[in-house]
C-alpha cells in the first residue's frame, strides 16, 4: 500500500511540476505574479475537450492543438495586458491585480461558452498495469511518460541554446539586457508561449484522467506556487523537485490522515518554508525584495 501511495504521489508530482514550470517561467523572468495561469490552465483543458469531443480530432492532434492554442492565448495576455503595463513602468502589484482581472474574464468566459458543469473526456474503464502490488492506470502512465518527456525537452532546449541564459539575464536587469542588443519583447513572448505549453500539457493530462470544470484552475495554481516556493525560485529544476516533493507529501497525508487535510498540511509546509527557508531548497541566498 505504502509504495502505491508513493507512486501515485510521484505521478501527481510530475503534473504539479508541469504547472509549476508554467508559472515559474513567467515569474522568474518578469517577476509578474501571474495569477492568470489558473485561467490558461482551464483554457488548455477546454480546448482539448473541444478538439477531441466536438471536432472529433484524434487524441494526439487534440493535445497538440490544445498546447498550441494555449500558447497563443498566453502570448495574447502578454501583448494585450502585461506589455502595455510594462511599457508604462507600472508596479508589479498593478500587474498582479490586472492578472486577477484576466483570470476572472477568461474563466467566466469559458463558463459562459461551455457551462459550469463537469465535463468528462473518456468514460470507459481504463486499462490497468500491474507491477507486483503496484497498480498504475493507463492515463497515469501517460501522465508520467509525457510529463517526463516534456520536462526533458525543456531542459534540452534551455541547455543547448542560449535561451536559458538570456532569460536569466532578462530577469536580472532588463535595461542592461536591452543595451546588450537583445530583444526584450521577443524573449518575453517566447517565455509566455513556453509557459502556455506547459500549463496546457499539465491540464490536458489531468483532464483526460479526471475531467474538468471551469474552476479547476485555482487549486492547481496554488499547488504550482507552493511547489515553486518549496523548490526555490529562480531555477527551473527546483520546480521539478518541489513538484515531486509536494506530490509525495500530499500522497503521504492521504495515506496517514485523510484527503480532507491535504490542503491544510500543504499550506502549513508553505508557511514553514516562507518563514524559515524562503529561498527554497535549491534557491541561492539573496535579499528578498
Amino acid at each position: 500500500m505504502f509504495l502505491q501511495f508513493i507512486i501515485n504521489g510521484i505521478i501527481t508530482g510530475v503534473l504539479y511540476s508541469l504547472s509549476a514550470i508554467g508559472f515559474a517561467l513567467v515569474y522568474n523572468t518578469t517577476r509578474i505574479f501571474h495569477i492568470a495561469v489558473a485561467a490558461l490552465y482551464v483554457a488548455g483543458a477546454y480546448i482539448f475537450y473541444f478538439a477531441f469531443h466536438t471536432l472529433e480530432f484524434p487524441l494526439w492532434a487534440a493535445g497538440i492543438l490544445a498546447l498550441l492554442f494555449t500558447a497563443i492565448l498566453s502570448i495574447l495576455t502578454e501583448i494585450s495586458v502585461y506589455r502595455p503595463l510594462y511599457r508604462k513602468k507600472s508596479s508589479l502589484n498593478t500587474a498582479m491585480i490586472a492578472s486577477i482581472g484576466i483570470m476572472t474574464i477568461l474563466i467566466n468566459g469559458i463558463a459562459l461558452l461551455f457551462g459550469n458543469e463537469t465535463k468528462v473526456l473518456d468514460n470507459s474503464i481504463q486499462q490497468v498495469f500491474t507491477f507486483g502490488e503496484i497498480i498504475v492506470t493507463l492515463p497515469q502512465m501517460g501522465q508520467a511518460i509525457i510529463g517526463i518527456i516534456l520536462i526533458a525537452a525543456l531542459f534540452a532546449f534551455l541547455g543547448f541554446s542560449n535561451f536559458g541564459l538570456e532569460v536569466r539575464a532578462l530577469c536580472n536587469d532588463a535595461a542592461l539586457f536591452e543595451i546588450s542588443g537583445f530583444n526584450v519583447k521577443t524573449t518575453r513572448l517566447i517565455v509566455f508561449a513556453l509557459s502556455g505549453v506547459f500549463l496546457a500539457a499539465g491540464s490536458c493530462l489531468t483532464a483526460y484522467d479526471i475531467g474538468m470544470d471551469p474552476h479547476i484552475g485555482m487549486p492547481v495554481l496554488i499547488n504550482a506556487m507552493v511547489a515553486m516556493i518549496i523548490g526555490g525560485t529562480g531555477r527551473i529544476r527546483a520546480c521539478i523537485v518541489g513538484g515531486l516533493l509536494l506530490g509525495i507529501l500530499q500522497a503521504l497525508v492521504v495515506f496517514q490522515f485523510s484527503a480532507n487535510w491535504q490542503n491544510a498540511i500543504t499550506f502549513l509546509v508553505l508557511l514553514l518554508f516562507l518563514f524559515f527557508k524562503p529561498q527554497g531548497i535549491f534557491g541561492s541566498k539573496k535579499r528578498l525584495v
Binding site: N93, G109, L112
Partner: peptide, 30 residues
Amino acid sequence: NLRQIIYGLILVLLMYFKPQGLMGELKIKN
C-alpha cells in the same frame, strides 16, 4: 458569469488607465 467578466474587464482597464482605482488616492507603488 457575465458579472464576473465585467469586474475582470474593469480591473484590467483600471490597472492600465487609473491604477489607484476610480476614486482612489494614490498610485500603488511597488
